[in-house]
Design a protein around this nucleic acid. Structure first.
Lengths: 125, 125
DNA sequence: GACAATCTACGAAAGTATTCGTATTAAACG
DNA sequence: CGTTTAATACGAATACTTTCGTAGATTGTC
């Protein structure tokens, strides 16, 4: 049974979650296929087993070949990670984080427009 | 001699860097004083030694009590970390990252204004 | 049915991060 | 001057993460 608090995924676990978010429910082999040649089959399997215990993924073992699906929403995890970084590296200043996230890139006009819209909606509350 | 590429700080290392960025050059004892009671003296010392090898901090050992200073700028490290997270968790979409960073908070009017100014300056280029 | 291929389980090895104990040395104090 | 206090060095213990080898079971194939 998964713990009632879901831990922050490790680096490898996050790589796997990203695949599952994109592909949806997948077999170990399918996940391995997307991980790149540097990750062995049993390694990926073991990680998925650990992630199942942690409650990060769910497993359908009705068939012999198990099928794994993400058990945490992408957005929730993203927020968890960015909030965590916000505290750990930016002293909680979202402003500074946004500044560094956008610095050094040339955001497209569309992106800027979208971000402006985001600010509008935030202010609306 | 420090390596010519400076690695991403670990979690503990980041805690120490944050203290050094805030306090400026500090002794081990001073750092320990701010780390909270859960970190022993020799632990902090060891971390600072490792960080010196990695080039994350510099050490002045002219006196018996050494003085450690950050060797990486706060902003550079922040950008390094946020860029890293951007790639690992957001598929490179700064927009989504900003969205999640601001979601669920009620940013002050001043913050929103500041962010708008940031967007303006980005667009100016 | 026998054999090969494929899958899961699992413990252990390898790698990395953190904590700690102990030795040694230097300063401070009486 | 001798003893206590405070500092660095460093190896080793612990913890966490990732990788791998091997065993056992099931499916597919000839």
């Amino acid at each position: 049974m998964p713990p009632n608090t879901i831990p922050r995924p490790t680096e490898s676990e996050l790589s796997i979650l990203r695949i599952l978010w994109r592909r949806g429910p997948s077999t170990v082999r399918e996940v391995v296929g997307e991980l790149g040649a540097d990750t062995g089959y049993t390694t990926a399997l073991k990680l998925l087993q650990i992630m199942t215990e942690k409650g990060l993924v769910s497993r359908d073992d009705a068939e012999r070949t198990h099928i794994f699906a993400p058990a945490v929403p992408e957005e929730t995890t993203q927020r968890q990670l960015v909030t965590d970084l916000l505290d750990r590296a930016f002293g909680g200043s979202a402003q500074k984080l946004v500044l560094q996230a956008l610095a050094g890139r040339k955001p497209s006009k569309a992106e800027v427009t979208e971000l402006r819209r985001l600010l509008d909606s935030l202010e609306g509350k």
